[in-house]
Design a protein around this nucleic acid. Structure first.
Lengths: 344, 344
DNA sequence: CTCACGGCTTGAAACGATAAACTCGCCTCT
DNA sequence: AGAGGCGAGTTTATCGTTTCAAGCCGTGAG
């Protein structure tokens, strides 16, 4: 029995290589390579022999050696802000679907809005020589991405309009999304509005805020009077919960809250329920992203919808179509979905 | 402008290699390699010179060549059933967190319950020579996973008790989870219960069903009388919606529904709302997974909670700790979280 | 004065797969 | 009959990195 194990172990020590296959099939390595890559150049009988040998040995191509020699690459890398956020998994899905068309694989990583983590993944991708990178940049990582591009790795920004002309990007117009949300609340008559925003190091947060301010400006309203801004570090439910509690504790409690994304809004709704604040009667809530469950919440959530799947698909498509040769900057337009959390 | 582009392209043709660095720093390639891997063996002055050269050239290690020569591997692969399902993204998170401790990277892929897709990813992982594989097997893929293990790639099954003694696995006891759910409904007095289950090719679906049947048996109830089984192909909201409509159309409409996962339950709740069926008064609903938003739904969802993050973390931990040397099969116990969708 | 030693560096041989160049019969065409 | 072409294989250089035996050189012990 112990013999069994050690035998098995021994046979596992080294993966069989083309040389082993060649030996067993009594041909040269070149022929094995031909069977693998240009089967039509090999006589049927020989091909059969080689294939049997491959089967017998359990041979699997070594991707490293293959890539080293041929330079052919089948992987592309993507860094998103948070893999636990449905918004990003839907994007990932869009990416995967586009890549599958070309038989490519996705290396998916989550930066957690942490520039160090993002940098680490970008380095890793570069070392692996990925065919290209899709990234939702966090603060200050544009330079790293430009450097990547200069090294010959095509980059497409995800959910982020490129701040420089050299990078392709796919984004949703978050400024107009921010306007959409706040105008809706203003139309409903709200004049004290809480705005739970994420760190202003994130482009999404900056833009949505700009949209909010623009809309106020257009109506001649003073942001200092209308808006109560609360900032959170993470764009998740817990952060939204805490921020909402802060808003509720204030003397000048707002009558509406605009949350920078749906996860935050989820937490906000939780805090409101626990604080026994009626939604939308005592407090209207608007979220952003329109994640799949937004319509199913205790109070269906009004939210700004973005074409997530299309976003990912398009980003991958631009990457594969243009490579380094061209720059394309696409912006989609968001749409407000009004539900029970704001309208009565 | 077009000149700009072509210039840039030209400079990108070849990535700088250790040889280039060595030349610039006027040392041998061996020294460069030492700076990279065993910096303490290199004199400080030399090390500085090499590091500057690396910086100047923008040198990035070639992971393929590195892996080819040294055999050292920093990637592990994971195939889950559906990356859009929060249950699996939480698992992925657990995996990532464990891997980060050892500075390893995750290649995450989604099989969509499609054995061909799964097989393709497994092959890809094998070619890349990953350090190990975590997989939520779909129907019939156990053999492929055993073959992988025989090739020297450690495998840990994810959310799946190993049917064979050779494979490590991390799972939640879905049989007892199924019992938990159905006993809860029986305790509430329900005697006609709809059971929206996924394909019986999925182990999760089989086990939860077994748990249901066991619980009925234990109470001396006849499954044929109590249970109305409806089968869906996909474990998502739309499938749950359609299945629920089918249940509602029946003459012997049930008074409760047990959905095999929360996404299905989400769809079920949607159908019930649209059909104007009061939950839980006219229809109790129990889900499975306790995804993050289960508590926030229009009717907070009773669900069977699983330790998702821990599941992923443990799977990765077993993989890294034991490798091929040992087999560990861990089973966690699920927990019923009762909420408004079942209790009045 | 020699020799051994230790710190630092070098140079060349791998790793596994690929592709270009080449060999060797054999057939066809002029 | 000789040139040329073709099909089926083989040989071999090569990708970029790591590793390892070997070399160099100054120092302290014998």
């Amino acid at each position: 029995m112990s013999t069994d194990t050690s035998d098995a172990t021994a046979s596992r020590v080294r993966r069989p290589s083309v040389t082993d296959v060649a030996k067993l099939a009594a041909v040269s390595v070149g022929t094995v390579s031909n069977v693998l890559n240009r089967p039509d150049r090999v006589a049927a009988a020989t091909r059969e022999r080689v294939l049997t040998a491959i089967d017998d040995l359990g041979f699997v191509r070594n991707a490293s050696a293959r890539q080293l020699r041929s330079g052919e690459i089948t992987t592309i890398g993507a860094v998103v802000l948070d893999i636990a956020n449905p918004f990003f998994t839907e994007i990932a899905r869009g990416i995967e679907d586009r890549l599958a068309q070309d038989d490519l694989t996705l290396m998916l990583a989550s930066s957690d809005e942490n520039p160090d983590r993002e940098a680490r993944y970008l380095r890793l991708f570069a070392e692996h020589g990925v065919r290209g990178v899709l990234a939702t940049p966090s603060h200050g990582s544009i330079d790293a991405l430009l450097a990547l591009r200069d090294k010959g790795i095509p980059v497409v920004l995800l959910d982020h309009t490129s701040p420089v002309p050299e990078l392709s990007s796919v984004a949703v117009d978050d400024v107009s999304g921010g306007s959409l949300a706040i105008e809706h609340l203003l139309d409903l008559g709200h004049r004290r509005i809480g705005f739970i925003n994420g760190p202003l190091t994130l482009r999404q947060c900056i833009d949505r805020r700009d949209g909010v301010l623009q809309a106020l400006d257009q109506r001649g309203l003073d942001p200092d009077e209308v808006l109560i801004e609360v900032s959170v570090d993470n764009l998740n439910a817990d952060a939204g919960d805490v921020a909402t509690q802060r808003l509720l504790a204030r003397d000048d409690r707002p009558t509406a809250i605009f949350c920078v994304n749906d996860l935050t809004a989820l937490g906000s709704l939780r805090a409101l329920r626990e604080g026994q604040v009626a939604v939308p009667e005592a407090m209207a809530v608007v979220g952003y992203d329109d994640v799949s469950f937004a319509s199913m919440l205790s109070t269906p959530l009004t939210s700004v919808r973005q074409p997530t799947h299309t976003l990912g698909w398009t980003a991958a498509d631009i990457l594969l179509r243009t490579g380094l040769d061209d720059v394309e900057q696409v912006t989609f337009t968001p749409e407000l979905i009004v539900r029970g959390s704001s309208a009565i």
